[in-house]
Amino acid sequence: MMNEYKIGEIADLLAITVRTIRYYEEEGLLRPSRTAGGTRLYTERHLSRLRSILHLAKNGFSLESIHLIASLRETCKTGDESSNKVSAQLETEINEITAKARELERLKDELAQAKWVINKCRGCKNKPTSNGCPDCPVKLHTGNIELLNLIWDQHS
């Protein structure tokens, strides 16, 4: 006999809300069976599928991308067609992740540079404003470290 779970049990197992599960069901990503009384029943397969959905969502995949990945195979007539279409979609996702990783690496470098400049203010007794510290290292580096424009005195 296959294990079956009610929606609340699935929510508890995955530490998510019942509403989240219903949302993915409404979006067509989950199709639980139902009892005669309408109670949703989920299997281990649903649990695994939901874990995959949550993993992708947590890592920034759009609902549209998740839906496409989840449904593309069933739109195909042959394994060959499926292989080609799914592989192409996964390649698109890989390329997007690669571009995002480069972007995040640049942001990480900028954060490190901003931290380095901010640390130069340790021990400073001046007020951290244009008037209070006209030669502040943060102010001096706002032209070459974009993030410092967010940190520096917005009224200057």
Rank of each mutant, 00 (worst) to 15 (best):
S65H: 14
L140T: 05
L150F: 15
S156Y: 08
E93A: 09
L68T: 14
G28Q: 12
T17W: 00
T20F: 01
T142G: 08
I10C: 11
I97Y: 10
R31N: 15
Y5E: 02
F61G: 03
K127M: 13
L140F: 02
I16M: 06
S62V: 07
F61S: 05
L111P: 11
A11Y: 01
T39N: 08
C76R: 12
E103A: 12
L72N: 01
S33P: 15
V117N: 11
D153V: 11
L14C: 12
Q89A: 10
T142Y: 04
I16N: 03
S62E: 05
E4N: 06
R34G: 08
T129D: 07
Q113T: 00
G38R: 01
G28A: 07
A88L: 13
R45D: 11
L140Y: 02
C76W: 09
L68N: 04
K77V: 00
R45T: 05
L107K: 11
D135L: 01
K120Y: 02
Y5H: 04
S48H: 06
L140I: 03
D153P: 10
G123Q: 15
L68E: 06
C124W: 12
T17V: 00
N3W: 06
E4D: 00
L107T: 04
E81D: 12
A36H: 09
A15W: 01
I145D: 14
C76G: 09
P32G: 04
D109N: 14
L56D: 00
L111C: 13
C121S: 02
M1P: 02
N126D: 12
E64N: 05
I10A: 10
T75E: 01
R22A: 00
G8H: 04
V18G: 03
E93M: 11
R22N: 01
L50K: 12
G8M: 03
E110V: 00
R73L: 03
E74C: 07
I145T: 03
S65P: 02
T39E: 15
T35E: 07
Q113M: 14
K100P: 02
G38N: 06
H141V: 01
L63K: 03
G8W: 02
C133M: 03
A88C: 09
T20M: 12
E25Y: 15
R102L: 11
N119E: 12
A57G: 01
E110F: 02
D109L: 09
R22Y: 03
M2H: 08
D12S: 08
E44R: 15
C133E: 08
V117D: 12
R19S: 12
T43N: 07
K77L: 07
E93V: 00
I16L: 05
L111F: 14
K120E: 09
R49E: 15
T20L: 06
E96S: 14
I94N: 11
L72C: 01
R51P: 08
S52V: 00
R19Y: 04
E110Q: 15
L30G: 10
I118V: 07
I145M: 13
P137G: 08
Y23L: 06
E96C: 10
M2N: 06
I69Y: 15
E93H: 13
N149Y: 01
H67I: 00
K120R: 14
H141P: 02
W152L: 01
L41T: 04
V117W: 11
M2T: 04
K115T: 07
T39V: 08
D12L: 05
T43G: 10
I145V: 08
G143L: 02
R49V: 14
N144H: 12
R45Q: 11
G38H: 05
L29Y: 15
R31Y: 13
